[in-house]
């Protein structure tokens, strides 16, 4: 996929090459976005946006990194952007009745269950996803890329433009934070 001829075809604006790029990468990009935003419609919008950005900025793609890293970088950036926008909207939610704009009554992603979770683990996964949502941004990205997308430490480091050691530290902190949140949760919800 990092074949220079393929990149050149994309740069030339070849429709078939773009179609191939989308078909080859859409599931992985969607899965990454879904793990971060935890909302199917938002994840689909982000996936579309990722490919549109890639198509428009392919001339800026440096072949020092792989196209995989480049696409993941755009996906993470777009997902974090969407999360921040949603948080902002939530913060100014009290203004909605005044301004009268209640877009589409989006639901809180607190009840999200990833479609790929095994049937018998759904309940626990739901609690875990709620805890992941509370992690600091960088920990959330590192944890999602590892656990949901299955990327290796080195690949995560490339996507996050950091070192392997830094990613390892982020993952350790994420796990420790998740343990604390989950312990608190199970202490207050005795019957789950």
């Amino acid at each position: 996929m990092t074949d220079p001829r393929f990149i050149e075809r994309l740069r030339q604006g070849e429709e078939a090459a773009f179609c191939q790029l989308v078909e080859d990468w859409k599931d992985r990009i969607y899965n990454t976005a879904l793990g971060l935003v935890q909302q199917e419609q938002d994840a689909e919008d982000i996936t579309q946006e990722v490919f549109i950005i890639a198509w428009k900025t392919i001339h800026r793609f440096r072949e020092e990194s792989s196209i995989q890293t480049w696409l993941y970088k755009i996906a993470v950036h777009q997902s974090l952007d969407a999360i921040r926008k949603k948080k902002r909207k939530k913060r100014f939610g009290w203004m909605t009745p005044i301004l009268g704009s209640d877009e589409n009554g989006e639901s809180d992603p607190g009840d999200f269950i990833h479609p790929g979770v095994q049937m018998e683990k759904k309940q626990e996964a739901q609690v875990l996803f709620r805890a992941i949502k509370k992690l600091p941004e960088q920990q959330q990205v590192a944890y999602s890329l590892q656990k949901i997308e299955g990327l290796a430490l080195k690949e995560i480091a490339q996507v996050m433009e950091t070192t392997d050691g830094a990613v390892e530290a982020l993952l350790n902190r994420a796990k420790s934070n998740l343990q604390k949140t989950l312990t608190n949760y199970y202490q207050t919800h005795k019957h789950e």
């Binding site: 989308v22 689909e44 579309q48 490919f51 790929g116 095994q118 626990e124 796990k175 998740l178 989950l182």
Partner: peptide
């Protein structure tokens, strides 16, 4: 709960994604 994502299958995007883009 921490192990609940083990063996997670990848989610699939809309099959008509390219057309929408």
């Amino acid at each position: 709960a921490l192990r609940s994502l083990d063996g997670l299958e990848s989610a699939s995007a809309n099959p008509h994604l390219y057309t929408r883009i």
